[in-house]
Amino acid sequence: MTLTVLALVATVVVGIGTYFMRSSFIHVFADREFSPVVRQALRYVAPSVMAALVVSLGVGGSAEVGIPEVSALVVGGVVGWRARSLPSVLVAGMVTLWVLRALI
């Protein structure tokens, strides 16, 4: 399978799956409700999968990781934690990266 076909198949399946999730209770399971355990579990999906992606892509990824990169991710994370906004993570992280790469 070429990479393009792989990406296309994944995109189509995730697209269909997403539509199914968004419409599930409106069409298929109308009149049904989640059990409290499932509702609770769904709440922890986002932090779990994002942490898993960050570790897998960061540590197991192909990119070279040095002091400027790690610092930029940490600064971006701390600023984002305080500011609670995605653009501020990007700005803080990129500026840190540029400054440190220029200095080191």
Binding site: A46, P47, L53, V54, G61, L73, G80, L90
Partner: peptide, 11 residues
């Protein structure tokens, strides 16, 4: 990768 970190923090 910064965007992924931002999404993690937001979650």
């Amino acid at each position: 990768p910064l965007l992924f970190v931002g999404l993690l923090i937001a979650a």
